[in-house]
Every structure is written in structure tokens, then in C-alpha cells.
Simulated assay, not measured.
Amino acid sequence: MNAKLLSRLVVYGLLLLAALFFLVPLYVMLVTSLKDGAQIRAGNLMSLPASLNFDAWQLAWSSACTGVDCRGLKPFFWNSVSMAVPAVLISTAIGAVNGYVLSMWKFRGSDLLFGFMLFGVFMPYQVVLLPMSQVLGFLGLSSSITGLVLVHSLAGMAGTTLFFRNYYTAIPRELVNAARMDGAGFWRIFYRIVIPMSTPILMVTLIWQFTNIWNDFLFGVAFSGADSKPITVGLNNMANTTSSVKNYNVDMAAAIIAGLPTMLVYVLAGQYFVKGLTAGAVKG
């Protein structure tokens, strides 16, 4: 066995171990969600269910109790959809315009402004809880989905700006200069030249923002009301709702339901995420 083949087997072996390490918890959650209470108490974590039983999924979706509310995760799921979709689109659009300006229409102090914006990427979200709550109260958006959309749009703006600005610095300036010489203005260049070349970074930003916003718990628990709680808050309330018998199968089904949208996004668009991260990595 030559050294090249041996090194390849070692790499594949390590990748397989890493995959198993991350997939075993998902396997345990899935098989537990398909068991009834008797099977859970009689078997072990790794055993397969005796038969496929989706009762726990039905309970988790439509009738499990989260505190005193026994409507399952369904209303929380649609709250998250109503919050995540506009917040992702708004923060991505703002980041694209900001990155375009800071990379191709530089002005005096633009680099300094970009440096200040980077503070938003590294600033702990706990720092902005109090001022953000005051702003939402002033605007009359407290405890509403609209308020959560605003919070996530502002919180994600720094990260999306960083993505787009770094990507746009790799676009040849000759294209923009030629368009200017032909009489194209700010928005015409943006829509006709820059946006068609932005598919990789758009995919990265959309996936990144959707994952962050959908999985967020801090803003959801701090700024939501009784009718606007996202699915992460609903899942936490369901898992912590006390009862005489702990329904682990329902909790596992609820956790999978909560994580299913982000898992689907990465399965369906993961290749675009990797390509987008590597695009423009040589320059800029």
C-alpha cells in the first residue's frame, strides 16, 4: 500500500468518524420520536422502533402543551416563518447595497465607516437588548413580529455588509468604469452588472441569515409577545412544561420539527454555500 492511498484512507476514516459523531444525536432523536412511551422505557437509545409511530409528531405539531397553550408548535412555526423571511430579505438587500457602496463608490471616510460597522459583527447581542427594547417601545413595535423583523434586520446588517463588501472588492473595476463611461448611473450599474454577478454571495448570505434568524432564541424570548413567539421559544416552553410523565418522544419530534427548515436549506443549497464562501477568496 503506497503512502498516497494510505493517507487517503486515513482522511476518509477521520471524515467518517466526524460524520458519525454529528449524526448519532440526530439518529437518537429520530428513532426516539418514532417510539411510544413503553418502547422508550424498555429499550435503549440506539434501538430501532418496533413500528413506525408518528403520534408524537402529531402531538408536537398540533396539540402538545407549551405552558398553558396546548396548540403544539404550529403557531410558533408560522411566527418564525413570518419573521425570518422578511428579515432575511431586508438584511440581505441592505447588506448588498452597503457592500456595493463601500467597495465601488468609496468616499472620504468610507473605510472608517466600514470599520465601525464591523463592531456590529463582534458585539454581543446582550449589549443591545435594553436600547433595542426602548427603540421598539418608542416605535410601538414591542411584542410584535414586525418588531422582531426590525431587530433581526438591524442585527444582521453588519454581517451581510461584510460578506458583500469583501465579495465585491474582487469584481474587476474595469467593468464598473466602462459602465460609467457609457453613462450608467449608480442603480443601473448595481442592477445590470453587480447583481447578476452576485449569485454565490447571495446564496451564502441568504443561508447564513436564515440559519441565524430561525435559530435565534435571545431576541425571540426578549422581544416577543404571547402571539409572536418564534419556534425556538415555543420549543423551550414545550420542553420545560411539567407533566406527570415526561414525553421524550414528543420533545424529540418537536426538536426535529424546529430544526427541519435549516437542515433542508443546507441539504438543498449547501453546495452553493461552499461555492459562495470560496468565490472571491483569491482577491480582496
Rank of each mutant, 00 (worst) to 15 (best):
G185M: 12
R192P: 00
V149A: 02
D36F: 05
V135Q: 07
Y266H: 12
V11P: 07
Q134W: 14
L260P: 04
T92K: 04
R180Y: 08
A222F: 09
I145T: 09
V11A: 12
F21E: 15
G185P: 09
G147W: 03
L30T: 05
G185Y: 06
N2Y: 12
L129V: 13
R71L: 05
I40A: 06
R165P: 00
L14P: 04
T199I: 15
G109I: 07
K283A: 03
Y167R: 08
T262A: 11
T199Q: 14
S144E: 07
I189N: 09
M29N: 02
R71T: 14
R188K: 14
D227P: 09
A158T: 01
Y12H: 10
V176Y: 01
T169E: 04
I193V: 06
L264D: 01
V81L: 06
N240S: 13
L141C: 08
V204D: 01
G280L: 02
L218A: 12
S103K: 03
W105A: 11
N79R: 02
D69H: 09
A226S: 14
W187Y: 11
L154M: 10
G67R: 13
L89I: 05
P75K: 15
M157F: 06
I90Q: 05
L136P: 04
A254S: 07
L112K: 08
Y167I: 03
V28H: 14
S80H: 06
K283R: 08
M46R: 15
V85L: 07
L9R: 13
D55M: 10
F163K: 04
L102V: 12
C65Y: 00
N237E: 12
M117R: 02
M238E: 05
I90F: 03
F219A: 15
L277D: 04
L235C: 02
R192T: 13
F54M: 07
V194I: 07
T161F: 01
M83E: 04
V10R: 12
G137F: 03
D216R: 05
N236S: 11
V128Q: 01
T169Y: 00
S143E: 13
G120V: 00
W187Q: 13
V204A: 04
I256F: 05
A84C: 12
M83D: 04
F186D: 15
G147F: 02
T205Y: 02
V11E: 05
N247C: 12
W187H: 12
F119W: 07
